[in-house]
Amino acid sequence: MQGRTLLILCGLCLLSLVSILFALSIGSMEIGLQQVLGALFSEQQLLESKVVLELRLPRVIAGFMVGGMLALAGCLMQVLLRNPLAEPYVLGVSGGASVFALLVMMAGLTGFWINIGAFTGALISILLVFGLTRIGQSWNPMRVLLTGVVVAAGWSALISFLLAVSPATQIYSMLFWLMGDLGYARFSGFSLVVLLIGLGASLFMARSLNLLTYGDQQAAALGVPVNQLRYGIYFLASLLTATAVMQAGSIGFIGLIIPHLIRIVLGSDHRLLIPASVLTGGCLLVIADSLARTIIAPQQLPVGVLTAIIGVPVFLALFQMIAIKQKP
């Protein structure tokens, strides 16, 4: 079982490498694989090297990490809420982030300040939901889910309000941000640390997460400290989501679809599901972003649109295949 896990993960690492190289080579300027490798590993100062190293690499790496964080947060949320429909944004993290990011944009600030605004908004939403669900009784998944969904609905109403009162000149960039966009995403050490901590901690609790899918009581009876684990998962998933949203806006779909895709193909064991989701989520976002940059170049599409356009048919096809295979 251990051997199979390692083999699959090695394969996915290879796939990640291929998708990153692919993303580095395509764009408005076609750069061959050899030149990409040359740019990465030799000292030549060609124009191609500059494009690869300074323009594409930071965006591709940031994209890979955001994809990984979203997929991981999706896995965690689905276990936490014991609901297959759960995804990173379901409890309002991205809504809070969006409201504050839009406020920052309305104030005329750009770039880094939008990230700060988004992260602040996400934290406020995380603490709000946590506080509301802690009042009175114990923490049960249905209550957390409903509270989160209602808070998210509140944020979404505020977003509509802000869009309605914003000047027409700002609407375009706001919508772009809301749909999820890697245009301004840059490699950041903070994201890397969050991703690594998230991945490490989730792998450490992986077998406990497996037990949690059998229900709280069963997990507790088998020796899982359920309450502590729940709080841990909530804050970890929220932090991952907040960091991803801060970097790239609300890129939809990856957090919902990747965990299910991996479950269908590789099974539900979190020791494999978690690292495999991170790698696959990273790959999908990197490929989707490459296409977003090039399909209707020189114009760019928001990557959130592409993740759905790629993800929906792949997921539905797999789902159909499973249904056909299981038919007696």
């Binding site: 689905q78 014991r82 609901n83 497996n210 059998y214 229900g215 069963q218 009876a221 479950r263 099974g267």
Partner: peptide, 10 residues
């Protein structure tokens, strides 16, 4: 327990 729950395939 009286009943067993499961959310995800295993």
């Amino acid at each position: 327990f009286q009943d067993s729950q499961d959310t995800f395939p295993t």
